[in-house]
Write a protein that binds this DNA or RNA. Structure first.
Lengths: 278, 278
DNA sequence: ATGCCTTACGTTATACGTAATTATT
DNA sequence: AATAATTACGTATAACGTAAGGCAT
């Protein structure tokens, strides 16, 4: 096998025209480079240089071989580039969701420092998620039904249950054990912008309501605490230190429940272990 | 720089699926190969294998990198092939002539063992010779006039003079000091098949003559010795130990002289030194 | 005399094989 | 137990830098 290092040296030499200058660029002693070029000639069993006592130049053979060396070096660069890309990819975890629930259920999975991976999270519809999982754009997706597809593993991993959060002074607070969409429809609610699949639920059962959309979750929480506007929480988003002036009332309808199934490629099923940390 | 040897090992591994088998094919101990693959991973800063205690397989990264490695290895093979071709070329000397005279004038040049080169010799017309010299098909050509072309060197190197060789008993032998084409035209002559430019001379001045063409020069010489048929020789083809029963009569016409000029590419002018050996 | 390449030589680092170790089937 | 990988360790080879030598400008 021809040593690719020597081909690289040849290219550098062709650009400086002298062993001395090349050796400086290559952080190598000049005798070493001289021997390296002799070795290349020996390996190829071909004279590549015209030599005089204090001058060395590429001969016709050398020029021909040089162009091949450049091609190979270009391929080497492509390989290195690919290796870099693959490393980035293997260090990142792309997760797709139909709704944000799993982020609260599996907090360590979604914290880059803990999983030692760069995380990207995207909320999309099921069909899109599945397509992109198969195309390796996602490593892991969460959807709301069981889906058996060749080459994919699918496991049920959680159920999310919707609650309405109202001030203790609110007229709805009397339903504190249970409530239905019908009971609360027609009011105005604070609502996070990114609730994915829950949008469909609300569109279906809360046609007469008004929603004040809020992008920032911290701001939403703050507004909720200092206003009397009802908002929504779920079993996984409820914090232990919830505001004392509010109560969370479970919604009894079947559509107030969302099951979550996690899917990934069979050969990467090991990723699912990450879920078991939580 | 990535060591191309390691890429080759990777390819062999991909074909056997085991380090042990690969190491045998590569005439290498198995621990060495194990370390080599670890080194490749380190150089690329990328995991290429899934390892268990007694099994190692390519992972997704490894498969991707493998295809790049194969491309590079193919380029390496092309380079080696090219080197081989160039070596063949640098060991051969292609000479073109308008007439065979220089072969006799520069005998060592045309003996492969002495010049340490494979020799090919071809007789063609000037225009063809020059074209092929420029296109590197010939390394050296001999033509009959001075020709100044950019990038070529041209030197006058010999003059060939035509003689007619007749038995001492022949009626033409009385002209032993000098003779003209006109004096000898109308006879029958022995003639070599490959006389190149001399054909034109004879076509012009010997329209009424008959020529007995002979491919093999040794046979021609033998026939000449044991017959009374006149033939042609020149100052360079005349042998010292010429047959005693014949005399060589110089032809006086201007067209009985052919000047020879040698041409080669300027950058290869060193080849001309070969002529000086003779 | 100077500059640049090659050869010589002693040293260091690298790559190898053998042997020991580990873990899976 | 057998197989096939990795790790440990001592050795031999190969690559390096310094120093010396040679030849053309």
């Amino acid at each position: 096998m021809i040593d690719s290092e020597l081909l690289f040296y040849l290219i550098v030499f062709s650009e400086t025209g002298s062993l001395l200058k090349s050796s400086e660029l290559l952080h190598l002693s000049q005798p070493s480079l001289s021997r390296a070029m002799q070795k290349l000639e020996a390996e190829l069993d071909l004279t590549l240089f015209d030599r005089s006592a204090n001058k060395i130049t590429l001969n016709e053979n050398g020029k021909e071989i040089l162009s091949y060396a450049k091609d190979i070096m270009m391929m080497m660069d492509h390989l290195k580039e690919k290796a870099k890309t693959l490393k980035e990819k293997s260090q990142s975890l792309n997760i797709g969701l139909t709704a944000p629930g799993p982020i609260y259920q599996f907090p360590t999975l979604f914290v880059p420092i803990l999983t030692n991976k760069k995380i990207s999270v995207m909320i999309e519809e099921e069909a899109e998620l599945v397509k992109k999982l198969i195309n390796n754009i996602y490593d892991l997706i969460f959807i709301n039904r069981s889906l058996k597809i060749e080459g994919l593993v699918c496991e049920k991993i959680m159920r999310e249950h919707l609650y309405v959060s109202v001030p203790t002074t609110h007229f709805l607070a009397k339903y504190h054990h249970s409530i239905s969409f019908n009971d609360i429809d027609g009011q105005t609610f604070l609502l996070s912008s990114d609730i994915g699949q829950w949008n469909e639920v609300l569109d279906k059962h809360m046609k007469r309501s008004r929603f004040l959309k809020q992008d920032d979750l911290d701001e939403l929480r703050e507004i909720a605490e200092y206003s009397t506007i009802p908002n929504f929480v779920t079993n996984v988003t409820m914090s232990k230190n919830a505001p004392k002036n509010r109560i969370n009332i479970p919604i009894a309808d079947d559509d107030a429940y969302l099951d979550f199934y996690v899917l990934c490629k069979k050969e990467r099923a090991a990723i699912l272990d990450l879920l078991k940390q939580d």
